[in-house]
Write a protein that binds this DNA or RNA. Structure first.
Lengths: 177, 177
DNA sequence: GATCCGATCGTCTGATTCATACGGTCTGGT
DNA sequence: ACCAGACCGTATGAATCAGACGATCGGATC
């Protein structure tokens, strides 16, 4: 009932980081940062802060002019909850979900050229994503001194590199046959 | 209504690979292979084959002796559906979900030693997982000639290596301060 | 300043997925 | 015969999901 999910902590953390924020602010901020290793639908950025408000972890001030809109601020209790969570041992495993790998796993039932196409698609996709990560890094390092925020992006990037390298190798092997 | 999800194709693929299988067979097979890059709750391995049966993609034979149990076999239609899916372009992105990265992202709100502990935890977890992957690979290469099945495990392994290397580096940096 | 349009913003919905508890069933040991 | 512990299947309410929809805004145009 009053239980906090990982997504709750994303909300708390983002508001702690950014200062007072609206749901839409969060939505945009999440999109090109934390959304890359903790995806969830944006609708939760409207329902979750409301819940956290009721729990006393966020304060809210309504700007009633025009579009109804709430600005959320983190409370001391909110900060406490956040740092308590950060101090807890982390039991959850890194979780990967990738239909491309899946298709490769069942590759024996595909036409060889389908597997090859798959590899080529994946190469392009990973290249794109690497670009995104790198521009994100550039943006962060320009105007941000907090290294911790950049570091997970670094891991995301390395995972992308590993995947890219992998599919490239596969493409090479398959196309030379 | 009659739409197939990615999980449907996991079921189809597994039965195509293994031959006639019960839900429990699938559960065990999925656990230490495909479950690593397409996780889902095991209950779906009971409901989903039933649905696929109704769609004509699986045949089922009931062994009524003792425990009620169904053995599923893939039909020609099932194989067609599977290879059609394999031939489709893959739009879904590689998806990573990792609360450890999340905690690091919000690391500025944690005690420095909490971040260090996090890194140490992660190192152990990734080492464990690497062991699991390697023993899986060994098992596969012993008794299996189909290289495609091994290859995604290879990617999983590389992602784990990247993560391990990353956390090790972090641990080193932080512990020397 | 009236109108229009595309971008911005928030809410709602039903469907799917989820974790996990629970109840049966089997095996082997005493 | 009984028990204990593994094995197997189902059921349930809660959480999550995608994405359609509606409302609101800013500013371009006349």
């Amino acid at each position: 009932m009053g239980k906090l999910t990982t997504t709750s902590y994303v909300v708390l953390g983002m508001i702690a980081m950014r200062g007072p924020s609206t749901s839409y602010d969060l939505k945009r901020a999440v999109n090109h940062s934390v959304g890359y290793f903790w995806p969830f639908p944006h609708a939760q950025l409207y329902s979750e802060p409301k819940r956290l408000g009721e729990l006393g972890l966020l304060d809210l001030e309504v700007e009633s002019e025009g579009r109804r809109r709430q600005t959320y601020t983190i409370t001391y209790e909110g900060r406490d909850a956040l740092s308590a969570w950060l101090a807890e041992p982390t039991t959850e495993q890194l979780q990967v979900r990738d239909v491309a790998e899946l298709k490769l796993f069942f590759g024996e039932f595909a036409q060889p050229e389908d597997v090859l196409n798959l590899a080529r698609e994946q190469i392009l996709q990973h290249q794109d994503r690497i670009e995104v990560y790198e521009s994100m890094q550039a943006r962060f390092s320009e105007r941000d001194e907090v290294a911790d925020r950049m570091v997970p992006l670094q891991l995301g990037l390395e995972l992308e590199y590993a995947a890219l390298k992998f599919w490239r190798k596969l493409e090479k092997e398959r196309s030379s046959q």
